[in-house]
Design a binder for these strands. Structure first.
Lengths: 224, 224
DNA sequence: GTCTATACCCTGATAGAC
DNA sequence: GTCTATCAGGGTATAGAC
C-alpha cells in the first residue's frame, strides 16, 4: 500500500473526502481513513493534529474540485450560458448515477451533519456555498438580456444550488434519479419562462442534453 | 428528572429527535439521550433493542409532526392554496429563526448523513419525503386552473421540497435567513409566473406574509 | 418497567524508536 | 516522515436485582 505516486498527505485528504462523503464525518473513523489511504497513525497525526483539521483540508480540496471539475468543465463543454448551467446540474446527476446513488453532494452532506460546534468548519462551508452560488450567478449574468432585468440573479443562483442540494438528498435515499430529474425539469421550465417571457411556451431555447462524459480521468468526479 | 407527565418511551423519542436533529445521528450517543430524557440504560433498551430502532421510531414521530404541525397547521391558517404552500415554507423559516439556526430540516439532516447501510432507515426516509411531496402536490392541485394544465405538479412539488431542504442547509451554516429568503422569493416568482401566465407581471396574487405564530404550544415545532 | 453495574470494543490521540 | 505500540475515554449494549 505504500509506494504510490501521490503524497501521503494527498492520499489522506482524498480518501477522507470520499469516506466522509459516503458515510458522513462522525461515522468515519480515522483508522478507516488511515487504512484505506495506506498510511499509519504516525503519518496521519504528523499532517493533521486532529480529525477536524483533516476535515478542513478536505473542504479545501472539495472546493477546488467543484471549482475546476464542475464549473470549469461546464465552461469547456459549451458557450451557451444556460447550457452551462445545466451542464453543472448534469455533473451532479451523472455522479449520482455513476456511484449508484451512494454519494450525494460533497458539501451538502457535511453541511447537514455538522452541528453547532465546528465553527471553523461552518465558516468554510458557508464560504464554499457562497462561491458556488457566485459562480452560478456568473453563468446567469452571461445569459444577459434574455433574463428580465427584474430578475434577482443572486437569489436565482441560490435557488439552483438549493434545488440541486435538496434533490441530491432525495435521490440518494430513493436510489433513483427520479427526484433529481423532476427538479431539473422544473428548473428548466422556470428558466424557460424567464428567458422566453412567455409562460405558455415550451422552453425551446434550452437543449436539455446532459454534458458529455469527460475524456480525461482528471475531469471525472470519480477521480476525487 | 423522573416524574414527568409523559411516558418514558415518548420522552426518549422526542429527546432523540431533537438531539439527532441538532448534532446528527452518529454524533449523538445513547448516553446523552438517556440522560436528557431522564431515563436509564435499562429503560432505553427495554423499548429499543438498538440505537437504530430508536431512529426508526424518531422518523415515525417526525413524519407525524410534519403531517400535523406543518401541513395540518398550514391548512388551518388560510384557505388559499398558494398561501398554504408558503405557510408551509414559512414554518421552516420560523423554526430556523426561533432556534438560532442550529436546527435545519429534521428529515434532510438525517437523510444527508445516513449512508449505504441503514436500509430500513433509507426506505422510511424515502417514504417520508414522498409523503411530504404528495402533500405539497395536493396543495398545488388546489390551485386548480390558475396553474397551466401543462404544469407537472408532481415535479413542482419536488422542486419546492428540494429548494426548502437545500435552503435550510445553507441558512444553517450561514446562520442567516438570507439564503432561505432568497430561495423563497424565487419560488414565489416562479409560482407567480405560472399562475399569472404573464412573466413580466409582479406576483401580485400572492401574499408573502409568514404564517402567524401558533397559539398552542402543541402546534409549535419547539414542542417536538 | 426501571435500576445499577459492567462488559467489551472502537475511538481519537500520543510516545518514542527509526 | 513513517513505524509500532499503546493509552484513556466513550461508544453500544447486556446482566440481573428490584
Amino acid at each position: 500500500m505504500a509506494g504510490r505516486r501521490t503524497t501521503t498527505r494527498e492520499r489522506l485528504v482524498r480518501t477522507a473526502a470520499e469516506l466522509f462523503w459516503r458515510q458522513g464525518y462522525a461515522a468515519t473513523g480515522v483508522n478507516a481513513i488511515m487504512q484505506q489511504a495506506g498510511a499509519t497513525s504516525g503519518s496521519f497525526y504528523h499532517f493533521f493534529p486532529t480529525k477536524e483539521d483533516l476535515l478542513l483540508a478536505v473542504l479545501d480540496h472539495v472546493g477546488e474540485v467543484v471549482e475546476d471539475e464542475v464549473f470549469g468543465a461546464a465552461e469547456v463543454v459549451t458557450d451557451d450560458p444556460i447550457e452551462r448551467i445545466f451542464a453543472v446540474v448534469g455533473f451532479y446527476r451523472r455522479h449520482l448515477e455513476d456511484n449508484e446513488f451512494v454519494l450525494g453532494s460533497p458539501l451538502g452532506t457535511l453541511a447537514a451533519e455538522l452541528g453547532e460546534d465546528h465553527s471553523q468548519v461552518r465558516l468554510k462551508l458557508e464560504q464554499l456555498f457562497a462561491s458556488w452560488a457566485q459562480r452560478m450567478e456568473g453563468l446567469l449574468d452571461g445569459v444577459g438580456k434574455r433574463l428580465p432585468a427584474s430578475t434577482d440573479r443572486t437569489a436565482l443562483a441560490r435557488l439552483v444550488l438549493s434545488a440541486v442540494e435538496g434533490a441530491l438528498i432525495q435521490s440518494r435515499v430513493a436510489r433513483s434519479v427520479a427526484p433529481f430529474d423532476a427538479v431539473t425539469s422544473q428548473l428548466q421550465t422556470y428558466l424557460g419562462l424567464l428567458t422566453s417571457h412567455d409562460p405558455t411556451a415550451a422552453p425551446a431555447a434550452m437543449r436539455v442534453t446532459s454534458p458529455p462524459r469527460q475524456r480525461s480521468r482528471e475531469l471525472d468526479w470519480r477521480a476525487w
